[in-house]
Simulated scan of single mutants.
Amino acid sequence: MRQIILDTETTGLDPNQGHRIIEFAGLEMVGRKLTGKHLHLYIHPERPIDPDAQRVHGISLEFLEGKPVYAKVAAEIADFLRDAELIIHNAPFDVGFLNAEFARLGMEPINKLCANVIDTLAEARDMFPGKRNSLDALCDRFEIDRSNRTLHGALVDCELLSEVYLWMTRGQESLAMDIEVEVPGGHAGHDLTFERKPLKVLAADEAELAEHQAYLDVLDKTVKGSCVWRALENPAPAEA
């Protein structure tokens, strides 16, 4: 399936308060490989940019002077996204802004335009409960170089997110589960004696262990007792 790694920068946090998209970036991925096809646009918002938002992305209204308004690029964005699966970190934010922009022009929303939306923030929270799951935190966790990222530029964030997504969805692709080899007689078969290399085990450090215990404390309060993980960590002695 054709996938688009997507990110936007905006004038503020809430499209319902009239905030607008000022930067759009999308990278195309097919078969888990970036194709090189992308769309990157700066857009004049026709309104001021909140100072707090500008401190995050570094884009000023002066920089956007002369850039096209959204109505001029809406069709280009829609054509780029059409029928694709979108991969977005904190998808409700970006989808909310895109839907608001399309609605102003009477265009169809993302759920009609695109095949599906994957929220990598929601998936990261399921994979790493109780941990920080910002894009920066995930890059650190997967040892992805983000040295070129000083501000939250949409295109740079897309490049980082593409690597994060591939790490998060690796599954068993690196394990040789079904390898065809030549066997006597010239027939293709399966090497039943294939030996898999031992998996690398990374032990939790002291900070991670402390964070784990803090999370168990929260679970204890929730169940008003001792959660099941406490019993697994401290099994009762067997009766004689």
Rank of each mutant, 00 (worst) to 15 (best):
N99P: 04
P92A: 07
G18I: 15
E101H: 03
L39K: 06
V201H: 15
L86N: 03
G31H: 10
L105Y: 12
E182R: 12
S134T: 15
L34K: 11
R82T: 08
S60H: 14
F194T: 12
D178E: 11
L138G: 05
V30S: 13
D140C: 01
A53D: 02
I88R: 04
A78C: 10
G189I: 02
P92V: 04
S174L: 09
I77D: 02
R125Q: 13
E182S: 12
E211N: 09
A74S: 13
R230C: 02
N116C: 01
A91D: 07
L202A: 08
N16I: 09
I179F: 00
T35V: 04
A25Q: 07
V183H: 12
L232V: 12
N90A: 07
F194L: 14
E182N: 10
D94R: 01
K221W: 01
A122D: 08
E85K: 13
L161A: 04
L161E: 06
R32D: 14
D52E: 11
S162E: 06
G12Y: 15
D126F: 02
E208W: 15
D145I: 05
A210I: 08
R132L: 04
E123T: 07
K37A: 13
A71D: 04
A71E: 07
D205I: 01
D7R: 13
A124M: 05
E239H: 13
H190I: 09
M127L: 15
A124Q: 08
Q3G: 01
T150S: 01
T11I: 12
